[in-house]
Design a protein around this nucleic acid. Structure first.
Lengths: 336, 336
DNA sequence: CTGAAAGCGCTTACAG
DNA sequence: CTGAAAGCGCTTACAG
């Protein structure tokens, strides 16, 4: 039995064993510090012997940098959010930072979550699919914590934002199905709380109405899930004058809708019913679906978000970046 | 223009404004402390005025608890990991803890990642789909940081583990396709580095061989992705004596395999080729796939993992929890 | 209940 | 390059 050494060695003990000052220990573990190789080597030897691990807490208390970025993200049940998480955390880890995850069960109480983030002294905050109050935004500005929101532009609130051009996306999707000969439309809606969805819907219905009039458009709620999209499609397809086209405001709902059309109703896609979605999640490209969609440029968005929160010096004015939409035509729509 | 107050108010300033000691400020923000309501109210008023946010770093330095749990997770490109992440972070947030995410690009260098986790003074470490060296495990024990691994049992290494019964899972899957009349088998393999996969494969091939002999079994690598499963299925189906059954060691590969069989080869599932997978990702239940599979009990696993790392007092011996497999029979296999 | 004081483990001018 | 000392923002015995 070896005697268990002290639970956590600190820099004082390392310094004592190495016969140096604690300042030397600090310098040995701070890249770029002025320390002689010989001294550093003695420190490393002592550190190894004591299983010394530097304490980031104490360090951050002084440097005022934690290398932690708070990320507020809805559940990853929608693959688009999982992809976003991957991109963001990979990029951040490349620059030596880690993601601290927040998935507030109560979005209404998001102010409290933000307060919580600030307590952890995070270097920056990334908010996906939620809003921030102007009071909390001001608090973050005061504390020099950059904030970037994803998919939401909040005029007058001093935070950066990155989003896709949803108006253009909706218009392109509508144009695609119109060009394919669509005349009776079902739109599968998502949450009224997500700006992204609301803007897509506005653009889609505006374009469709201008072509076929409001009477030819029905709307149902798909709740942003596969099962919800499935149910919404069944509801829309009931009765006379059945739609010849379903526009689904997210891909995950489009998958449910396609399966409803094919497997529950026994109709063909796109011959009987054309389907178009938004996001371009991986499943949209699977051979069982081959879903035409408008891509949400995840990689590009992550890149801009990281740039905005890492910029030195911090830009004086909040920046709003809008990324163009990119239509992906596959086999679920008619024409060309 | 209001004059911008000091960037970050600290407890000293709050104390001064409230006319109390800093100990009183500390107590006002520490639930359960003995402080009179009147005093607390004065502190809150001053804190509000100064936009005071307590500094968790300083607090944790003393209390030795950060309320942060490190989670090492491969990329969420496999939906099963996304589901796991959701479960773990939701449960942890319920107990007031946050997940600090680590996605090491270089799993070979995992020791360094672990060291990195310890620097952040995390309260516990959850490791999915990776191993921990006995040296690092000992370091965590010394520092009183509980570690739990997911899907990997490491005899002799003092960490907790939670995993499914992969032997039983593989056996059940093999029995299912055998009962369905399968006689020529293709097995789509994943990574040789994942214990889970290796154990499934061993159980599947053992059972199949005992029934039809080794000559009737072909194996191809599907790389744990949809595209890889697709390619592997095409390779397995080439030439004479084509398999009548594909056993895919993860669902995500099974989706690719099913699409290859149906859409690239024009064959029927399950009539021409039966397909079975493992995990029960959401897509397995989609009507386009209706994939028979063996469920990985994500919720239960997350529950046990959290229990193991939260147990007070820390169990003296590492615990290894094995969760039974649950076969889900859908339409991609023959019989019953 | 309340406050003065010590101290958590580090970094960083400052002086040599 | 190196060290002594002050200090980051808190908590916690201790004494009253």
């Amino acid at each position: 039995m070896t005697k268990r050494t002290r639970v956590r060695a600190n820099s004082t003990e390392v310094a004592r064993l190495a016969g140096v000052s604690i300042a030397a220990v600090s310098r040995a573990f701070a890249p770029g510090s002025s320390i002689s190789p010989a001294l550093a080597e003695r420190v490393y030897a002592a550190a190894r012997e004591l299983n010394y691990v530097p304490n980031n807490l104490a360090r951050s208390l002084i440097t005022r940098r934690t290398n932690i970025v708070a990320l507020m993200l809805p559940t990853t049940s929608n693959p688009i959010f999982a992809a976003m998480l991957d991109e963001i955390s990979l990029r951040l880890e490349d620059q030596g930072k880690q993601v601290l995850l927040f998935t507030p069960s109560d979005v209404a109480d998001f102010d409290r979550t933000l307060q919580h983030m600030l307590q952890y002294q995070v270097d920056a905050i990334v908010i996906a699919a939620a809003s921030i109050s102007s009071r909390m935004a001001a608090l973050c500005v005061d504390r020099n914590v950059p904030v970037v929101t994803l998919g939401r532009y909040l005029p007058g609130i001093p935070v950066h934002s990155v989003r896709g051009d949803e108006h253009d996306a909706g218009t392109q999707a509508a144009d695609l199905v119109l060009k394919g000969g669509g005349r009776r439309f079902g739109v599968i809606d998502g949450s009224p709380n997500l700006t992204t969805i609301v803007e897509r819907k506005a653009a889609v219905t505006a374009r469709l109405e201008s072509a076929v009039g409001p009477g030819a458009i029905r709307i149902a709620d798909g709740g942003l899930t596969y099962a919800g999209g499935h149910r919404a499609a069944l509801a829309l397809m009931e009765g006379p004058d059945r739609p010849d086209t379903l526009v689904c405001l997210t891909d995950i709902m489009a998958l449910g809708a396609m399966d409803a059309v094919r497997h529950a109703l026994g109709l063909r896609v796109p011959e009987d019913v054309a389907v178009v979605g938004f996001d371009d999640i991986p499943e949209a490209g699977y051979m069982s679906y081959q879903l035409s969609t408008v891509r949400t440029p995840v990689k590009e968005m992550a890149k801009y978000m990281i740039e905005l929160i890492s910029a030195k010096p911090e830009p004086a004015e909040p920046r709003a970046i809008k990324i163009p939409a990119q239509l992906i035509v596959r086999a679920s729509t008619r024409g060309l």
